[in-house]
Each structure stands twice: as C-alpha cells, then as structure tokens.
Computed example of a mutant assay.
Amino acid sequence: MTSLPGEPDQGGSTPEHRVLVCARCGAPADGPPPATWTCSVENGVRQYFCDICARENLRAIEGRLDSSWW
C-alpha cells in the first residue's frame, strides 16, 4: 500500500489500490512512484512530487539539505 500525500504511513494487511498524485500539481502516477519522482518527508508526512514539479523547484529542494550533503 502506498500512502497518499498528506497521509502518515500505516501498515496494514489489506492492500488496496490508491492512485499516487503529485503533492504540488496533482498529476497522477500510474502504479508505484516513478523513479523520476521525488519523495519528501515533511512534518512526518511522506509527500511525492512529479518530475516536472521537482525540476521546477530543484533549487528550493536542495536548499533544505545540510551542507554535508553537498
């Protein structure tokens, strides 16, 4: 089961199909998160961003990293 943006991760024994959407623009992903999408954990919540939104906001995303990462 994949958590939707804005939902905490929860384990469960009943898998259900959920459409993953970009937390910024709402673009849907077909199946599991594509390798080109970015995953971010903000305030304990996992959020996914499509490749277009991630590229457009790359500087802001990288700006949050500690200097040890770059």
Rank of each mutant, 00 (worst) to 15 (best):
A60C: 06
S67N: 14
P8K: 12
R24L: 09
W69M: 14
P33A: 15
R24S: 00
P8L: 02
P28F: 12
V41H: 13
A29T: 05
P15S: 10
Q47I: 06
V45W: 09
T2A: 01
A29E: 03
T36F: 06
C50I: 01
C39Q: 14
Q10N: 12
W37N: 02
G11N: 12
G31H: 03
D51A: 15
C50Q: 05
S67C: 08
D9M: 09
T14S: 12
R24T: 04
E56C: 06
S40Y: 00
D51K: 10
L65T: 02
C50Y: 04
C22N: 08
G11V: 12
C50E: 03
G31T: 01
P15D: 09
W69D: 13
E16G: 05
R24N: 02
Y48C: 09
A35I: 05
P5T: 01
R59S: 10
N57A: 12
S40D: 13
G63Q: 11
L4D: 11
L58P: 06
P8G: 04
W37M: 06
E16W: 10
A29H: 04
S13C: 00
S68C: 15
D30E: 15
I61P: 05
D30C: 05
T2N: 03
S40F: 01
P33V: 08
T2Y: 03
T36A: 15
M1Y: 04
R55Q: 15
C50R: 01
A60K: 00
I61F: 13
E62N: 13
A29R: 03
F49L: 11
L4F: 00
N43F: 13
P34R: 01
D30V: 13
L65W: 15
A29Y: 10
T36W: 03
Q10Y: 01
N43P: 08
G6E: 08
R64V: 13
H17R: 11
Q47E: 09
T14G: 04
I61W: 11
I61L: 15
W69R: 07
R24W: 04
Y48Q: 02
G12K: 05
D51V: 07
L20D: 04
G44L: 12
W70T: 12
L20H: 00
T38K: 12
E62D: 10
H17Q: 05
R24A: 05
C53L: 09
C25G: 13
P15G: 09
C53T: 03
T38P: 00
D9V: 00
C39Y: 00
P32S: 12
P33Q: 03
S67Q: 14
A54R: 13
L58Y: 07
S68P: 04
L65Q: 14
R24E: 03
G63K: 08
P5A: 08
A35H: 13
G12F: 01
N43K: 15
V21H: 05
R55H: 12
R18N: 03
E42Q: 14
C22S: 06
M1W: 03
M1A: 07
R24P: 00
S68T: 15
P34H: 00
G63C: 00
S3R: 08
